[in-house]
Nucleic acid binder design. Sequence first.
RNA 1: GUGUCCAUAGCUCAACUGGAUAGAGCACUUGACUACGGAUCAAGAGGCUGGGGGUUCAAAUCCUCUUGGGCACACCA
Length: 556
Amino acid sequence: MINYKKYIQEKLFNILNVENISVENPPKENMGDFSVPCFNLRNEELKTPFEVSSYIKDNFVDDKGYFKEITVMGCYINFFLNYNSFDTLVINEIINNSSYGSFNQGNNEKLLLEHTSINPNASPHIGRIRNSLIGDFLGNLFSFVGYVVERHYFINDIGKQISYLLLAYEKYGNSKTTFKDMLELYIKINAESKVDSSIEEKAFYYLNELEHGNKEVREKFKHLTDICVEGQTSILNSIDIHFDIFTHESDFVFDDSTKNILDMLNKKNVLKEDDEGRKYADLSGYDIPTKSPVLVLTRKDNTSLYPLRDIAYTLYKLKRNSNNNYIVLGEDQETYMKQIAAVIDILELKAPVLISYSFVLLNGDKMATRDGKIVLLEDFLEIVKTKLKEEFNTRNILVNEENLSILANACIKYTMYNVSINKCVNFNYKDAISFTGESGIYILYSIVRINSILKSNKYDEGVSLKYINNIEHKIIKELYMFPYIIDSLLTTHEASSLTSYLYKLATLFSSYYENVPISSETDEVLKASRICLLISIKKVLTSALAVLGIKTVDKM
RNA sequence: GUGUCCAUAGCUCAACUGGAUAGAGCACUUGACUACGGAUCAAGAGGCUGGGGGUUCAAAUCCUCUUGGGCACACCA
């Protein structure tokens, strides 16, 4: 595929001897397909931007004939594509290239990505799920552009809260206790601990035994966390989110990892001990926005604190992959990750790249478990499915469970992805369940309409293509942009750019669908060309949706 | 208090990371259903981009002050 911006840049270099001149996409149709602002290109001979743009126009040699027109508009110079050749080129490329959209940026390199890692005592809810979705999106994206992605999940099976849960499980649970029951047990034991101090003592007793290698206690913890993780992952699987590697936090306590880290930090002269006997890493010299630049690593009884175990886990991940290593965490972890990164730097390694996101608000408020201001993922999915069923009933259409799931997933994913990563998602049922206008359903509906036409119209290979409508040029131009959109995501990590792109392409198609006949077109060349266009639109829509982890349906 | 992120139409969000007249959806108003599937399309109305100052040919975007919110700030994970 031709990179027109680069082509223009090379020609401009020949004319002005300036490299990488900014080539933009003009905001309006009458401004052409590519444009170059000439304000910054003034020099001693060309004193005004207008002189520059005129000079470029007079000296630009379009030897390949890509442009049908080059115009000067004020201080901009605008390039108009020669659509006759452009349209055919793009459509042929899309039809023939099985990985259209990818420039193979990953080149089969391995990439490690950690996301979600929910505490075992918690259930995936709309807030937490933002982590999983961003993680899944990144995994799909990296994989799409040719990385070999490994998705990691860290099971925090050793904290105080899991010890509480174990106590509750032993007191009230039985062999039939499920993951969902666990949440109630956890709330119950927390309430009890407020009036009964022996619970906290027992919890610490268990933790201590665990950390000192008591095999029986270890088994208990393992059994409990297995139930929880199984429950969590099956909910996540229901929205098509999967992991390759699960790692237990406790593993790093049972082997020598944490001890080794303390030794290494000691050798670097950053391991200090406070009055009470707690060990901490001295991070002075690093830009850590805390009151004092330290990271506490152990309790006074020498048992490990979470950061120490987390460092051990991070080293484990870096050992598997030191180059492409990513972690998705909420914005509340930013300072903490700076501390971890500092320690990793002291150990002369490169910390994982942090992708952080802002929280999800519920009707403008922060989600709070204790006030019941929380939307569990499974509950939300049920609500959407019920609403969808009603919609199908009014149309007298039978729908299967699988398609219901796909549509419900599309709903929630589109809603969550449509907001920039560092802005809060303001979640409300009304908008999330909306099936009209900008929504996941709208995109899937577009594909259903395409399918409907393709079913009764076959595509003949090798036909010559001809596009005569302005909207066809616009659609093809949009299709051409797809690989560049994908490429930009690698640096911005913004799923919202992709939802915008999908929506724009789908609206263009809808307008096309309403205004240009396809099946009923009598000119065979035009008809075949339009069928090819539909195939191309479908292919790009489907690829983009796949990056967002959204599947498509044949009918709805 | 210090650091950091955010504030754009009544509501929910965009704006190619400094470019041309700030764009969409919902809601509201009007038009198109004997339909290539109306979960749609065509159109209307809606803005001092929280406020002040600055840098620039050019600011929603950068700097500064200010107002209102989120998050973090040693022994939780």
